[in-house]
């Protein structure tokens, strides 16, 4: 049995992990909705006795490998095409600082 208490704190913590900043109104709205889904829908799985192998895909798929031959990928120009001008520098994407 999964025991879980769906609180504002928990949802806030999960949202932070998912890189979402929730406003107070969003929290007010989401907490009861998410609670209802977890308790009514997700937790229903508790009552199933399932020892079967998990189906990570619904059909059997075995690994297939292509021949190990060099192939052309995206050109530099194409790879950078969708980056905004301010987030492009020479042959690189520019991102926010990490440290």
């Amino acid at each position: 049995m999964v025991s879980v208490e769906v609180t504002k704190d928990l949802i806030q913590r999960v949202a932070k992990n998912a890189r979402l900043k929730l406003t107070d109104e969003e929290l007010e709205k989401f907490v009861p909705q998410i609670k209802e889904i977890i308790l009514d829908a997700f937790n229903k799985l508790d009552s199933v006795d399932a020892k079967e192998e998990p189906s990570f895909q619904p059909v059997k798929i075995s690994n297939r490998f292509r021949a190990d031959e060099p192939k052309k990928g995206l050109s530099l120009e194409d790879a950078l095409k969708n980056a905004s001008v301010s987030l492009r520098e020479g042959a690189y994407f520019k991102g926010p600082k990490v440290l």
């Binding site: 999964v2 928990l10 949802i11 998410i34 508790d46 079967e52 998990p54």
Partner: peptide, 25 residues
């Protein structure tokens, strides 16, 4: 949020993995 929650340590086996087993059933 729902998906991130269900994959969190401590819940992953009860939700995500269980759902995959139920799918086989």
């Amino acid at each position: 949020i729902l998906g991130t929650f269900a994959r969190m340590s401590g819940y992953r086996d009860a939700y995500y993995l269980k759902a995959m087993r139920v799918r086989t059933k």
